[in-house]
Amino acid sequence: MPEGKGTDGSRTRDRDRDPGLQPERTRLAWRRTTLACAVAASLAGRQTLHSGIDPAPLVILALVVLAWLAFLALAHHRIRAMHAPRPPALSPRAAAAAVACTVVLAALGAATLR
């Protein structure tokens, strides 16, 4: 942020704020995606519970919860980055981790199909 901090903080903020609200829209997109992930994860959890209580379904349920928590942490991290007036681009590693959470959910689901 080269011109981020002026003597008059509020005025600088106003000038730096994007009138198209790009950071806000991106933040909300992360929120929506977290919500979608929660829906997919709860359906996955329901799936494991319906296959009876064995050690294996419980392990899968734990992994589902873990995948969801990982996505939540990623989204939280990125949402915090959106507080900057000009947020840096998403890192490929974070994008790969978000994709990995989705693929892991799908794989865990495939493992518990009846």
Partner: peptide, 18 residues
């Protein structure tokens, strides 16, 4: 945001599978 929209589509498909 486009990436996230595709990711949501992916999650909806996974949820649909369940």
């Amino acid at each position: 945001r486009t990436f996230l929209a595709w990711l949501r589509t992916a999650m909806a498909l996974v949820g649909g599978g369940f």
